[in-house]
């Protein structure tokens, strides 16, 4: 663990573009972020907000015909967007590793889980002997709290439950001790009791290894459980950034406020949920001005004209809304 306070990863003005016959459309449209060392950055948003494409852009895995059109991704002082495919392969594994939502589709069904972990380890450590790799793979399974790891080593993915498969994916991702783990909806496909186990495991592993985590999710509950810092995304942009407390206790962007109101809460007995009218605009039909204005109850004329940049409201807390800080608006309404 470094003593430096500089963030481990910095994303600066990243744009991920897809060429279409009607011109380029931006799935990620000018995103800047920082991931502190040893901490978790939660990225929240609904489907289509660009959060998954952002993580693929960081990993250098944007599917064709997409490409990173502008901006930089800096892992310490290496600019990842400038790397060759071979250079990027070297970063993946020990630099950045990733786990996905559906472990079944990320695992090869015709190889045992042990062989798959060994294969991942061999890719980054060609010198190690077979026996050594096997031992390390079993250790990796033990670290993610898989019971009787020696037996599980020889099993196929279909023999494992969903939670066990996600543990295998985590074991594989952590096999090369990455400094940053990107977890894209890691518990979305799992039941709540299993989700709680996996989140607990991720927290423990982070404390153990000091790695940084980017947690991508649509679930504000998961964010509140895990994230130190939060970025809320809407239509390809970050609309609000701050600490978890900033976002949950002092939400400033109307979209964040609407999202907080949309989640059913177990502690409360509201008859009606607050909902946001309409739906997320597709990237080829973005509204003029602020991208959220057609759904925003606080919108005024100016919102339809100018696209607001992220502005700092208090140290570390930023929102992209011309009506922020919203307290004055709230004062008139409540």
């Amino acid at each position: 663990m470094g003593v430096s306070n500089a963030p481990l990863l910095r994303v600066e003005g990243l744009r991920t573009l897809f060429s279409t016959s009607a011109g380029d459309i931006a799935a990620v449209d000018g995103v800047s972020l920082e991931v502190p060392r040893g901490k978790t950055l939660g990225i929240v948003g609904e489907s289509g907000c660009g959060k998954s494409m952002l993580s693929l852009s960081i990993m250098g895995l944007v599917p064709r015909p997409g490409r990173v059109g502008a901006g930089r991704v800096l892992l310490e002082d290496i600019n990842l967007t400038g790397l060759t495919p071979a250079g990027m392969r070297a970063v993946r594994g020990a630099g950045i590793a990733m786990i996905f939502q559906e472990p079944m589709t990320s695992l090869n069904p015709v190889h045992t889980v042990g062989d798959q972990i060994v294969e991942a380890m061999r890719a980054h450590d060609a010198g190690a002997s077979e026996a050594e790799l096997r031992k390390r793979a079993i250790d990796a399974l033990r670290r993610v709290r898989i019971p009787s790891p020696e037996r599980r080593f020889g099993e196929y993915p279909h023999q494992l439950s969903g939670g066990m498969r996600q543990r295998v994916m985590i074991a594989m991702a952590l096999a090369c001790r990455p400094r940053l783990l990107i977890a894209d909806e890691p518990t979305t496909a799992l039941d709540v009791t299993v989700q709680a186990q996996i989140l607990d495991l991720l927290r423990d592993l982070q404390a153990e290894t000091g790695m940084s985590v980017i947690l991508i999710t649509h679930d504000l509950g998961v964010v509140a459980e895990m994230a130190d810092e939060v970025a809320v995304m809407y239509a390809g942009r970050v609309v609000e950034r701050g600490t978890a407390r900033d976002i949950f206790e002092d939400p400033q962007h109307p979209y964040t406020i609407g999202l907080l109101g949309s989640i059913p809460r177990i502690e409360e007995d509201r008859e009606r949920l607050l909902s946001i009218d309409g739906s997320v605009p597709p990237p080829f039909a973005l509204p003029q001005g602020c991208r959220f204005h057609p759904r925003c109850p606080f919108a005024i004329r100016a919102c339809t004209e100018k696209d607001p940049p992220l502005r700092e409201l208090s140290p570390g807390h930023q929102a992209a809304c011309i009506r922020a800080p919203v307290e004055a608006v709230v004062e008139c309404l409540v």
Partner: peptide, 10 residues
């Protein structure tokens, strides 16, 4: 097991 949208309960 339900994750609560409240960071103070973490």
């Amino acid at each position: 097991a339900i994750p609560r949208p409240d960071p103070s309960r973490r």
